[in-house]
Amino acid sequence: MASSISELLDDEGYLRNLSDWSEEIAQHLAQEKQIQLTPEHWEIIYLLRKFYQHYEHSPAMRPLCKAIALDLGPEKGKSLHLLKLFPGSPAKVAACLAGLPKPDNCL
């Protein structure tokens, strides 16, 4: 399983094809980043996949927070909340787990 997943990833560990994504793959990628996925993670992951379908790109931090606040409420859209769930660079880590390309405009 592990070796077959790594064949689907690019050099930076992002899925090459959106359609290859599954919850199992998200679990596997999360494990590698030492993240234990909870319902709070999954709602962000699914929101990101919806974002990509609609806007055809992976969001940077600011629009991600805004989109989450609009959809899941202002508390969830705070960057602190995202930093707890996806430590480091939330926009990049969450995009990776959601099977999206790396965000272009991310600091």
Binding site: H54, Y55, A60
Partner: peptide, 15 residues
């Protein structure tokens, strides 16, 4: 090509 309308829709999320 990628749809510019999709990117244009996201402009407000980028303020």
């Amino acid at each position: 090509q990628k749809n510019l309308n999709s990117l244009q829709s996201s402009l407000s999320l980028y303020d």
